[in-house]
């Protein structure tokens, strides 16, 4: 396990630099005007950054009020006995609830937890893994089926939610395993 952890640490250290050289290199081989493409994409990125602002404000304020009032602590104390039994920290419960409903909002939850607990705390890591490994199921369903006017979605929602719930629990256990 220790060996795997060291290995994982090394891989983590080089993965981003690797992507940053591999993509422009591949682009140059394919004769893409890399600089212009980059600027084009960065413009798009700017729009995304602005787009998520209202979501982050909405979530920060709502969770901030809930936390400052002491209600969060009460909820954590209340759910702790049950959740600890299954190895689930009560602090990540809001993430598990909000994740299938809103993408922007759940990125706000990750950011809020990162601010409260730090980016290398167990809780933030769990929430971040949940965020990265599940989708906004309700939104995806609404958009995809809405686009083709399908109203009877049959087993699409149950199948999606089963995968989501599983991914949420797996995120908790895998982080416990990899960052003890």
């Amino acid at each position: 396990m220790e060996q795997i952890r060291i290995y994982q640490d090394y891989v983590a250290a080089v993965v981003i630099p690797l992507i940053i050289i591999a993509i422009p290199l591949y682009g140059m081989i394919k004769r893409v005007p890399v600089y212009e493409s980059f600027v084009e994409g960065a413009k798009e990125g700017f729009k995304i950054g602005v787009m998520i602002m209202p979501y982050i404000v909405a979530i920060f304020v709502a969770i901030g009020v809930f936390r400052a009032s002491g209600a969060m602590e009460k909820m954590e104390d209340f759910t702790r006995p049950v959740l600890t039994y299954i190895g689930f920290p009560p602090e990540v419960l809001p993430m598990a609830i909000i994740r299938p409903l809103t993408g922007g909002g759940s990125s706000g939850v990750v950011a809020e937890l990162a601010e409260e607990h730090g980016t290398d705390s167990m809780i933030t890591r769990m929430a971040a893994t949940m965020f990265g490994s599940t989708e906004t199921t309700f939104y995806v369903l609404a958009v995809y089926f809405g686009a083709v006017n399908v109203k009877k979605t049959r087993h699409a929602l149950p199948a999606g939610l089963i995968a989501d719930v599983l991914a949420i629990f797996l995120s908790v256990y895998i982080i416990r395993l990899m960052f003890p």
Binding site: I23, I29, S37, G45
Partner: peptide, 18 residues
């Protein structure tokens, strides 16, 4: 966050164009 998002989206745009 905007800076990092722009950096990443720029790279992804190269990947897309390539």
């Amino acid at each position: 966050l905007v800076g990092v998002i722009a950096l990443w989206m720029g790279l992804m745009k190269i990947a897309e164009d390539a």
